[in-house]
Design a protein around this nucleic acid. Sequence first.
DNA 1: CAAATTTCTAGACTTGGTCGAAACTGATGA
DNA 2: TCATCAGTTTCGACCAAGTCTAGAAATTTG
Lengths: 152, 152
Amino acid sequence: MTYTHAMETRNTLKIDTDQDIASQLRKVGITPTQQRVQIAEILFARPQHMSADQVLALVNRDGPTASKATIYNTLGLFARKGLVREVIVDPSKVFYDSNTTIHHHFFNVDTGELTDIPADDLILNNMPELPPGTESAGIDVIFRIRSRDARH
Amino acid sequence: MTYTHAMETRNTLKIDTDQDIASQLRKVGITPTQQRVQIAEILFARPQHMSADQVLALVNRDGPTASKATIYNTLGLFARKGLVREVIVDPSKVFYDSNTTIHHHFFNVDTGELTDIPADDLILNNMPELPPGTESAGIDVIFRIRSRDARH
DNA sequence: CAAATTTCTAGACTTGGTCGAAACTGATGA
DNA sequence: TCATCAGTTTCGACCAAGTCTAGAAATTTG
Ligand SMILES: [Mn+2]
Ligand SMILES: [Mn+2]
Ligand SMILES: [Zn+2]
Ligand SMILES: [Zn+2]
């Protein structure tokens, strides 16, 4: 278990009050504004993969709460701070993954569905040496799948 | 070695005349038009990763040869026919990989550079079972790296 | 309350796709 | 061999979605 404090807390504590979320955000150096707290509430309600558009729609379900620009700013901020993981599998949009523990993905190219594969279900051996002067920024393993009945 | 005939030929034959390329295209059921031959010439000159925009620029370097629409149509066609592999690593654009043998990638998130890792340098063990009713459409393994000096 | 930060609206920008008209390809048969 | 013609491909000119900017207005912090 080597994930960050913020992540570990998120994965072990039940977060359901704005107080909790606000302090979580403060811990990673993010000022907890109303918009950020709402976005975090939605995102961290459970491990899930959401697009910016989905977050926007959910945040504003009952009346306007945050603008599109704020959604993008906030998701980018959360990603930089390590609260969410950006998953690049679909050229048309980024998925924000609220599960930041190490794991891999199935991506159904027919349905666009993205699902998790626990890290220990797959073992990588013989990992390549990184090119000189570089350091790891994460490993993505994506099993692209297709619904078997889908028009060939 | 289980790649398709077209691929194997590309990897073993030196292709430098339009005749060669035209017959390669015919073999996979693609009518070899002038635009398609030019695009193929550029793409298959060597194993490389190119964006649609890069192909467009190179094809039209000395005078207009193919329109943007044709570039996108052709790259999509080549991908469907298995002549190139789409690599999704950068949310802002698709890379078309003229190397269709099984292999993995380093992606430098600072420079946008994409480089190959030979398949046998990495071994995947304990591969997960595919979800019921699905079949594989490819496995992507991407080592995201960062230049070590890059601003934190 | 003032300074610093954040949000918002509006619009720009990029990748990639669509549409209908014009050009091309390749099979046919005179 | 060549004209013809149906089917295919290309093209320019939009268009759409996702994402990012800019500057003004609002909010947060101390
Ligand atoms: Mn797109
Ligand atoms: Mn982008
Ligand atoms: Zn995930
Ligand atoms: Zn490659």
